[in-house]
C-alpha cells in the first residue's frame, strides 16, 4: 500500500476520535446516576421504570400520533390497567411537575436538547 504507515496511523486516530462518545462514557457517570428527582407522592408511572427510561421519547411520539391522528386520546396501561388521558402537558407534567430536577437533569447529562417547551407549557415553578 502507498504510504502505509501514515494511512494506518491516520485510520487509528480517526477511529479513536470517532468512537470518543463510547470510551468517554467509561470515564463519565452512569446514565442512571444523573441525579433525577422522582415525583413525590406518586409511586408508578404509566409503564415500568425500565421501559419509561429507555422508551419515553418513543412513547410520547406514539401518543401524539395516536391522539392527533387516530382520535385515541386515552392510554390503558399494561402495568396497572389504569386509563390515562394522553397529554404531555396535562398528564405527564402533573406528576413530573419539576422540570429542572427531572427532565432537564437527565437531558443535559445526556446532551439531548428536545424543544418540547417552545410550544408545550411548563408547569408552574418550572
Amino acid at each position: 500500500m502507498y504510504n502505509a504507515k501514515g494511512v494506518i496511523i491516520g485510520i487509528i486516530v480517526f477511529v479513536i476520535i470517532f468512537a470518543s462518545p463510547f470510551w468517554l462514557s467509561w470515564i463519565g457517570t452512569d446514565y442512571t446516576k444523573t441525579g433525577v428527582v422522582l415525583p413525590q407522592g406518586e409511586k408508578q408511572c404509566v409503564e415500568d421504570t425500565e421501559f419509561m427510561r429507555a422508551n419515553h421519547m418513543r412513547l410520547l411520539d406514539e401518543w401524539r400520533d395516536q391522539a392527533l391522528r387516530e382520535e385515541n386520546r386515552a392510554y390503558v396501561s399494561h402495568l396497572s390497567g389504569k386509563t390515562f388521558v394522553i397529554s404531555l402537558q396535562n398528564t405527564c407534567m402533573k406528576c413530573h411537575n419539576n422540570y429542572a430536577s427531572f427532565c432537564e437533569k437527565c437531558h443535559v447529562a445526556n446532551s439531548v436538547y428536545p424543544y418540547c417547551w417552545t410550544c408545550h407549557i411548563l408547569p408552574e415553578g418550572k
Partner: peptide, 14 residues
C-alpha cells in the same frame, strides 16, 4: 408495530 405495551382507546366521555 406499536411501541407501548398498553392499549390505545378513544377518550371516555368524548
Amino acid at each position: 408495530a406499536q411501541i407501548a405495551p398498553g392499549k390505545y382507546i378513544p377518550r371516555p366521555g368524548g
